[in-house]
Amino acid sequence: METVTKAVRDTVGALTGSQTDSKPQQQSAGVAKSKITKNDWILLTGASGFVAGHVLVALLKAGYKVKCTVRSNEKATKIRSLYRQYASALDFVIVKDIAETGAFDEAVKGVTGVIHTASPFVMENTGDNRKTLLEPAIQGTLNILNSIKTYNPDVSRVVVTSSFASVLDLSKGDWVGHTYTERDWNPVTYDEAAFADGAFAYCASKSLAEKAAWNFVKDPSHGNFSLATICPPMVYGPVDTETMSLSALNTSTADIYRLMNGSEKKVPNTLFYAWVDVRDVAMAHVRALEAAPKPNGVEDRFLTTPGVFSYKEICEIIARRFPHLVEAGLTPDPKEADEVPPHYNVDGSKSVLELQLAYKSLETSMVDTVESLLKLEKQEGKAQANVTV
């Protein structure tokens, strides 16, 4: 279960809420695109999350207007202050509890596309997985789909942020020789997850919520929209130094920071091998939003990953590009790391072929991440005395 716990800690989720007012435009025939067009209003749930924040930037840069759901007015104010140049292209709705019936009824009005990233992220054993994880994840997804069905027939495309946790078969461990693709599913059941530990239940919540979404759209009465799901594994990438603090890093960024702040004296064993850069995940959401739906109910499911990695590789990159961190004892020496054991592989080629993604390399992602964290240290005055940036 240590494997699952580590995987969950580094699989990024999102947060919350906002408002809108535009009409959908028709796409000319002939091009394999959805009915979504630039300048349309798009609903983005959980807009203050790590992944969602990058999705927001990608949408705005692509020319869309974005209605954001967040959990508080404070979060809405913060986002507005960061993107003043897009003031006329931003709107907000407060959604405090995504599992509450009707939570998205107002939010879905006036948009032509929806990107749903909001989902609970709870790893601790709470004693009631159904209440803290399973129902919020499943009902949060069904709530937004039901709201679209009931209150906005103009929505033509919905993209749901799922996870590699919904692909991974935890019972197989490292599953040497297997290559995970979109065709794989986490087979855990609701009853198994209800009384499991928090990490296992989190993985189950992602799988069960995604399955609920696919079952919903298979019903002929579900509405006029098509569905795509994005399944990212460990999501790394640079932090926004204007909004992030070292004391409140998202879990996957904290996973890298521990490899450069002296917390780890030895390269830790890698317990979860698939990864992706957050900027590529964001682009995957936008491209999936714009993509034409598959015919005859074929699932538009995308495993978004360039491949596998190890902590040894990450430490090798840090040692090569930021040698002072190793010399200062802040990054474990990769020369002393254990050999990486055989493990499963992953195949994200469908996302390359159909979404035209060009994945960033592990080195690019890690260099950008470390540089952003060093900048954050400097801003907060926490850089080590013997470390120069």
Rank of each mutant, 00 (worst) to 15 (best):
T5K: 09
K6G: 05
V8W: 02
D10F: 09
V12P: 00
G13R: 11
L15S: 02
D21M: 09
D21N: 11
D21W: 05
K23M: 01
K23W: 00
P24T: 00
Q25T: 14
Q25W: 02
Q27T: 06
V31G: 00
K35L: 06
T37G: 00
T37K: 07
K38W: 00
D40N: 14
W41K: 00
V51Y: 07
A52V: 07
A58I: 01
A58C: 09
L59I: 05
G63R: 13
G63P: 14
K65N: 15
T69P: 02
R71P: 06
S72V: 10
N73V: 05
I79V: 11
F92N: 05
I94W: 03
I98M: 12
T101N: 10
T101G: 01
G102H: 09
F104H: 03
V108R: 01
K109M: 07
T112I: 10
T112P: 00
H116S: 03
P120V: 02
P120G: 00
M123H: 04
N125H: 06
N129F: 09
R130P: 02
R130I: 14
L133N: 06
L133M: 14
Q139V: 09
I148N: 02
V158A: 10
V160T: 10
S166G: 15
V167Q: 07
L170T: 15
L170R: 13
S171H: 11
D174E: 12
T179I: 15
T179W: 12
E182C: 09
P187C: 13
E192H: 12
A193D: 05
A194S: 15
G198P: 03
Y202H: 13
Y202K: 12
S205M: 10
S207N: 08
E210W: 02
A212G: 11
A213H: 09
A213R: 07
N215Y: 03
D219T: 14
G223W: 07
F225D: 01
L227T: 11
I230Q: 04
I230P: 03
C231T: 07
P232R: 08
G237F: 03
P238K: 04
D240M: 08
D240A: 10
T241A: 11
T251H: 00
I256K: 05
Y257M: 01
N261L: 06
K265D: 15
N269K: 13
Y273W: 15
A274V: 05
V281Q: 04
A282N: 09
A282R: 03
E290M: 13
G297V: 08
T305Q: 09
V308F: 03
S310Y: 07
S310F: 11
I318T: 02
F322S: 02
F322V: 01
P323H: 12
V326L: 15
E327L: 12
L330T: 07
P332R: 14
D333C: 08
D333W: 10
E354G: 01
L355V: 08
L355M: 08
L355S: 02
K360T: 11
S361E: 08
E363T: 14
S365P: 11
S365H: 06
T369P: 08
L373A: 03
K378C: 11
K382R: 15
A383E: 11
Q384T: 00
